[in-house]
Design a protein around this nucleic acid. Structure first.
Lengths: 247, 247
DNA sequence: CGTTATCTTGACCGTCGTCAAACAGGGTGG
DNA sequence: CCACCCTGTTTGACGACGGTCAAGATAACG
């Protein structure tokens, strides 16, 4: 069973987007890897480096991040368990941004070569990885729209919705409530806002009863209403697994 | 010769990022396609649609675009000749955003199936396409940083630099001068600004002698200084062709 | 229980958005 | 060739969303 294997969550993530055969599943679960546990803020990928293995997140959260010359930080995406954190540098030479652990994380490191060998060896698994990469790109696009064209409140709500839906799709926590261990400064870096304004925005959402926070937990008592406010439509997440179109 | 073939520019683009063999080149140039000429603003990909062919831009400009529920538009990327405009929907079921012609364009439409058949048939060409997709994702990430964390002037300068460098890399026009047929409203939609503020920003850049505009042509008399102001570093464009790592 | 990070709030400010009007350019048709 | 229009550009006055600065309150952590 996939659940017995550490890579089970990784497989689940791939199957969220692509239909796989038993043979495909076997190939994925048979990928070599070494386990690693890392502390919050550990760099899993560092700009300029050449990666020899691809980290896959098995527990905890991580984020993708980039800095301006002035030192301002922009968080580019948040990653949840099951997601590969560095498909890009399996095929590219040099990392162009950073990936950091947000919480303490368990990570499976898959040798780059093992993933490269899949190209040619298993077209349907390559298809699944391709779809995964393309869905991540789609999330980047929505992120651009979010940061470029929505006001602070909508922007914040949108990010909260996206995470809720993605966690749900991975079978982690319910849609109406989850653990979000980001500081308000990190939220600001993700949304292109300052920590202070994040605070004000969260207060507004709370006052309107759209979110309830205690500790690092967020709940959504009026999920439908929140989706409205967030201008959220899950299409861009491509959550319906699609058959290998080559078939 | 590749230059005799309509897909020559497409090949050149792929070779900017990946090293190809003669056999690979032959496969790419032998892809079936039909030519098409479209007017400005024509939709080449429309959100929600299922595409059966992948447009490749051969002349003119196009852009990728998405709308908020309120109708605000965000341009996600600008495309120049040689670039495939819709690798995403070769592998995904449903378009999650739009692609529109910016100028009148010549476009080669490659049947989706022909591209799908490459997976399994030609690993090294698939590698090249993968790299292409990943570089586009890298450009999205930089775009997020640009919109999220840079002020209007830097943001504008950065976009102008990116286009200059990409055009240069494709052998189209010089670094110091090119044709940019975008209205100020479109520039605003790309940068997350209003047309009015785009105008003010362009004026500032002009006054500082960093850009010179007449008609739709932009020139950069002080390229080095502009790179500074733009906080521009071309690493994220991955312009050094990299050998197939599977070799 | 002290120390530090994070959160929270208020006062103030600046970049950028809004609204509006004038202006330039480029087609079109008379 | 010149009126005419339409789209795009330019500018100014004003307003607001979000940034900055600073201080106090809370929570996290050894």
């Amino acid at each position: 069973m996939s659940k017995d294997n550490d890579l089970g969550l990784f497989l689940r993530k791939l199957e969220t987007h692509a239909v796989l055969s038993d043979a495909d599943r076997a190939i994925i679960l048979a990928l070599p890897f070494t386990m690693q546990t890392v502390e919050p803020l550990t760099y899993l990928v560092r700009e300029g480096e050449r990666m020899q293995q691809c980290p896959v997140l098995l527990s905890g959260y991580a984020y993708r991040q980039k800095l301006t010359g002035e030192g301002a930080r922009q968080i580019l995406s948040i990653h949840i368990p099951g997601e590969a954190l560095d498909f890009e540098n399996v095929f590219l030479d040099q990392a162009d941004h950073n990936v950091q652990a947000l919480t303490s994380c368990r990570v499976a490191m898959i040798p780059r070569q093992a993933l490269l060998d899949l190209v040619g060896a298993s077209p349907s698994v390559v298809n699944a990885i391709l779809v995964s990469i393309l869905v991540e790109a789609s999330i980047f696009r929505e992120w651009i729209l979010n940061v470029g064209r929505r006001d602070a409140k909508t922007r914040m709500a949108h990010m909260l919705c996206e995470l809720a839906v993605r966690l749900q799709a991975q079978g982690l926590g319910a849609e109406e409530c989850y653990e979000l261990p980001m500081t308000q400064e990190q939220l600001g870096d993700a949304l292109g806002l300052t920590a202070v304004h994040v605070n004000r925005t969260l207060r507004t959402l709370s006052e309107e009863g759209l979110i309830v926070r205690n500790r690092r937990q967020v709940c959504f008592p009026k999920w439908r209403a929140l989706l409205e406010v967030a201008d959220f439509n899950a299409n861009y997440l491509h959550l319906q697994p699609q058959p290998d179109p080559r078939a």
